[in-house]
Design a protein around this nucleic acid. Structure first.
Length: 417
RNA sequence: GCGGGUGUAGCUCAGUUGGUUAGAGCGCCAGAUUGUGAUUCUGGAUGCCGCCGGUUCAAAUCCGGUCACUCGCCCCA
């Protein structure tokens, strides 16, 4: 027997969750469009190589988290674990260098083979925003402001803080990396096993180790800002003063890093303490080296991705978008079925949300209406048909009156105001 | 991949030192009320006690394994 279970780490989106998702998406779309971003939808899978190139052969995502398989034509393909690679690829595939700068937004499912946990699924959903072809710090400011506005409009800005850092330009970044390796190599025997691996794979990552022994060493490790050159400093200052001009609060976290080499300058995360171990709600940064690394022309890029499921857990009931309450048409007796269906259809053509009470006696059908959270029930019996009226009952007030069929739509619309 | 917790009705959960027919609330269905819902009253059905094996006269209960969920580590949105 087939297991009537969803695959581990996947979930059905329905009911309250669906409403939350839709609310978040509508706000996201509206805010992104106000920043003049265009919608883009890239395929949910790409050639495996696309992700390997961009994420690096040693990253956890590539080494153990990708859903990779061979298709019938023998191609190695991978369900996307993140957005940026696909969008960068689309940028080049479509020759959009011509129309740069490009500002995109997108929303959809992502896949990572991980052990599920609170706020972490194997199929999850992200909203994503990218600006391609703008090396100026104004893009950094705009992208962060977009994210900040969205969280505010979702009513969760107060629970979330913006952590900000600069990884520097490639020059200062490389200097810092060297200094870190040198420093930690001196304490090799004291480092945790995890950090020991990070030392040659991804030394910057040691900085956010939670191991107590590591933390003591990290305290005295060289700080990234000591290695900022003039260009880096200027860029970062512009970002910071821009955020201040827009009254966007941030805290500097010089332990906030990105492992891969194509990242530079701005790195940021919007985090909360209300989601257990998974505190990051939105994260992004600048990746000016990415396109070149993928084999395209040098193109600046900055963006962020935000986790729908995580945000869905934070937003409160009050901001959820509610849909129109339906009107329920209830035929009385089988002979009225067809006429009732026609009445329902006319109402629908007039833009009214209509459900039908399909079976049972009048009490049953009224019950059905009530369960659908209907505002009105319209009883249609032989008697009503003979006189071209419907018996319209207001289910909130318990009152009812006969309304001529030709006035039904208008009556409902007025009453719903 | 590693460690902790939990699996009993559609949902939330009780179930005594192992003891024979496994419970409650909510929800669901039916009736009171065959042209009037939500309230009220009455009645009904909930079930491989996650799955497999072991111990025992006897297992929802104890033991082992397994699967799932969940929390944390790693990593990330």
């Amino acid at each position: 027997m087939a297991r009537l279970q969803p695959v581990r780490g996947t979930h059905d989106v329905l009911g309250d969750k669906a409403i939350r998702f839709r609310t978040i998406y509508e706000k996201f779309k509206s805010v992104a469009e106000r920043y003049s971003h265009q919608e883009i939808d890239t395929p949910i899978f790409e050639f495996t190589e696309t992700f390997k190139r961009t994420l690096g052969d040693t990253s956890d995502v590539v080494t153990k988290e990708m859903y990779t398989f061979e298709d019938r034509g023998g191609e190695q393909v991978t369900l996307r674990p993140e957005y940026t690679a696909g969008i960068a690829r689309a940028f080049m595939s479509n020759g959009l260098q011509q129309s740069a700068p490009c500002k995109f937004y997108s929303f959809g499912p992502m896949f990572r083979y991980e052990r599920p946990q609170k706020g972490r699924m194997r199929q999850f959903h992200q909203m994503d925003v990218e600006i391609l072809g703008v090396p100026e710090p104004q893009a950094d400011i705009e992208v962060i402001a977009l994210g900040s506005d969205l969280l505010d409009e979702l009513g969760i800005g107060k629970h979330i803080k913006l952590e900000l850092n600069s990884l520097g330009d490639p020059g200062s970044r490389a200097d810092y990396r060297d200094a870190l390796v040198k420093y930690f190599t001196g304490f090799k025997s004291a480092l945790s096993e995890d950090s020991l691996q990070r030392l040659d794979k991804n030394p910057l990552r040691i900085l956010d180790s939670k191991d107590e022994g590591d933390r003591a060493l990290i305290e005295n490790a060289p700080r990234i800002f000591e290695f900022y050159n003039e260009a880096t400093k200027n860029f970062f200052d512009e970002v910071k003063s821009g955020l201040e001009a827009l009254s966007i609060n941030y805290v500097i976290n010089d332990r906030l890093v990105r492992g891969l080499d194509y990242y530079c300058h701005t790195a940021f995360e919007f985090t909360t303490d209300q989601l257990g171990a998974q505190g990051t709600v939105m994260a992004g940064g600048r990746y000016d080296g990415l396109m070149e690394m993928m084999g395209g022309p040098p193109t600046a890029g900055i963006g962020w991705a935000a986790g729908m499921e995580r945000i869905a857990e934070l937003i409160s009931e009050e901001i959820l978008l509610n849909s129109d309450r339906p009107v329920v048409v209830a035929p009385v007796g089988n002979s009225t079925q067809v006429v009732a269906m026609k009445i329902a259809h006319d109402l629908r053509l007039d833009g009214i949300v209509v459900d039908m009470a399909y079976r049972g006696n009048v009490a049953k059908r009224m019950k059905r209406a009530n369960k659908q959270n209907a505002a009105f029930a319209i009883l249609i019996g032989d008697d009503e048909i003979a006189r071209s009226v419907g018996m319209v009952k207001n289910l909130d007030l318990g009152t009812q009156e006969e309304v001529s069929l030709s006035n039904l739509s208008q009556y409902i619309r007025e009453a719903q105001k």
